[in-house]
Design a protein around this nucleic acid. Structure first.
Length: 479
RNA sequence: GGCGCCAUAGCCAAGUGGUAAGGCGACGGUCUGCAAAACCGUUAUUCCCCGGUUCAAAUCCGGGUGGCGCCUCCA
């Protein structure tokens, strides 16, 4: 089953071919843990997760890395500010990230490598660069010599001459050229450090990703992802370091996700313009956030606002309502599968269901088009609701069972939680009102029944009657 | 200033040469005591503007206009 993937470097889509048959290596830049994760970090994580799931679904064995840059200037500064070790800051934020990633429904990565745990690999890589004379020690630092890498700028489509005009050497740096970047930073007084052949210091920002990716995935691997804002300089520099050291292509496919915006402007921690994920989780169901993040193609920007989130909640509620209706008809579904076994459309009996599965798979194989795939999920939703409303028959039962399997299969594919629906606990006084309304209805006291319904509405509850049976369903507002 | 991306109905959003998915909203219908939910139907003769290529363009090319991103740390 072919998968088409857009590659930032080649600026086009290509049919995916693994670098090494049998195993696919994937690396997604996680965060520099100076702060708690925000929605932008979640989007990159969710996009990476869905790409990984899609590759696995279509038969690839994926090794998925999501790194932490757990030492850098800002983490150290934050530690000083709070009067604690930088590691305390890093540890706290890594924990927050992993908790968030779990809540939003991502599968755990194969590894979450940390820069501080790969100092020997980093040294080794720097050593190779120094030996090839593409890196040089200066004033306790080690810098990458950009002019030695002829292809510098190929990822971000920039010319070295254009870059040079804006670049500057900051005070305290010892670069030969403004474009050179640090692969090792000498420690100043009071800063954490590791010993190295070039003196005490810590890794530069970009080197850890090159060293860790190569350690676990080899010198050339399949996918490297992250936010679009990492293209320059981070990923450009990774290419330069890695390819200068190995003489080989570093990454086959660069998959960059579009940025999350707030009021049309990029969400960013440097401008204090962001939603902290923990604040968002406190008021919006994480599954709804995942659903929303997947409703736009991963390479497009996505706007976060109360209005958008509210709409996503309603739309996702439609899916959940169908899940609930299926549960009512068939009982609780089996628990979700992390490793989703592909379903063969040819083995689906009902032609309409078969079409949905085929189209959904096509959408996912076409550069991970989750927005389109979700559209097909809604079509399935409509089909199922229609089946559910048909008069009882053996044929109906078979269609519903087959459709329910498909529904959960597709939900699992996207990582949407539709199997375990949160139980809505109805307060006793609310249920008492609802029961009183049933009595009024049975007595055909419509005025009283409507008055009670108004009261419930005022209390934030919607009551839905189920035909003439006297049964009802209570739903809290916004659900 | 340089480089890149984007512009589709009231809103969100798919669409990469063959005659506009899906969601929200609105309106009409079925169901209901009335609603809600669900289902059925309607809601873009047209895809920012102007040219061009083509039998055929939202999709390709050129030129505008508007927005965003990167060029410094950023998912």
């Amino acid at each position: 089953m072919s998968i088409k993937v857009y590659d930032t470097l080649r600026a086009d889509r290509f049919e995916f071919e693994p670098v090494r048959p049998g195993s696919v290596g994937m690396y997604v830049c996680g965060m520099t843990v100076q702060d708690k994760p925000h929605v932008g970090h979640m989007r990159a994580a969710v996009v990476g997760d869905v790409i990984r799931r899609t590759l696995a679904y279509f038969g690839h064995d994926v090794v998925f890395l999501n790194n932490f840059t757990d030492v850098d200037d800002k983490i150290i500064a934050r530690g000083n500010q709070e009067g604690c070790d930088y590691q305390v800051i890093a540890e706290r934020n890594m924990t927050a990230y992993l908790e968030a990633v779990d809540k939003i429904g991502n599968l755990r990565a194969t590894h979450y490598p940390k820069a501080t745990e790969h100092i020997p690999e980093i040294h080794e890589l720097i050593e190779r660069l120094v030996q090839k004379d593409v890196a040089y020690a200066a004033g306790g630092d080690v810098y990458f010599r950009v002019k030695k890498f002829a292809e510098y700028g190929k990822l971000s489509k920039r010319k070295v001459d254009d870059l040079r005009s804006g670049a500057r050497i900051e005070p305290g740096e010892h670069k030969e050229s403004p474009l050179d970047f640090a692969v090792w930073k000498g420690a100043k007084e009071g800063e954490p450090y590791w010993d190295s052949p070039w003196g005490k210091g810590r890794p530069g920002w970009h080197i850890e990703c090159s060293a860790m990716a190569m350690k676990y995935l080899g010198e050339t691997f399949d996918f490297h992802g992250g936010g679009l804002d990492l293209v320059f300089p981070h990923h450009e520099n990774e290419i330069a370091q890695s390819e200068a050291a190995t003489g080989k292509e570093f990454v086959r496919n660069w998959t960059h996700n579009g940025l999350v915006t707030l009021g049309g402007e990029k969400m960013s921690k440097s401008t204090q313009h962001f939603f902290l994920i923990e604040d968002l989780f406190a008021r919006v169901d994480p599954a709804t956030i995942r659903f929303y993040l997947l409703s736009t193609h991963y390479r497009s920007p996505i706007e976060f606002s109360e209005e958008r989130l509210g709409e996503a909640g309603i739309a996702f509620g439609r899916l959940k309502a169908t899940a609930q209706a299926l549960r009512d008809a068939l009982g609780a579904p089996p628990s979700r599968e992390d490793v989703v076994e592909p379903m063969d459309p040819a083995r689906i009996v009902d032609p309409e269901l078969r079409t949905v599965l085929g189209l959904f798979q096509d959408a996912m194989r076409d550069d991970f088009n989750t927005a389109k795939a979700q559209g097909h999920l809604f079509e399935l939703c409509r089909l199922l609701n229609r089946f559910l409303a048909e008069p009882a028959s053996g044929a109906k039962d078979e269609k519903i069972e087959e459709g329910a399997r498909l529904f959960h299969h597709l939900g699992d594919f996207l990582g949407l939680e539709l199997r375990e629906l949160g139980e809505v606990s109805v307060p006793d006084e609310i249920d008492a009102l609802a029961r009183a309304r049933v009595e009024a209805r049975q007595a055909k006291d419509w005025a009283k029944a409507d008055q009670i319904r108004d009261e419930l509405t005022a209390l934030g509850w919607t009551v839905e009657d189920k035909g003439k049976t006297g049964e009802y369903v209570l739903k809290p507002k916004g659900c």
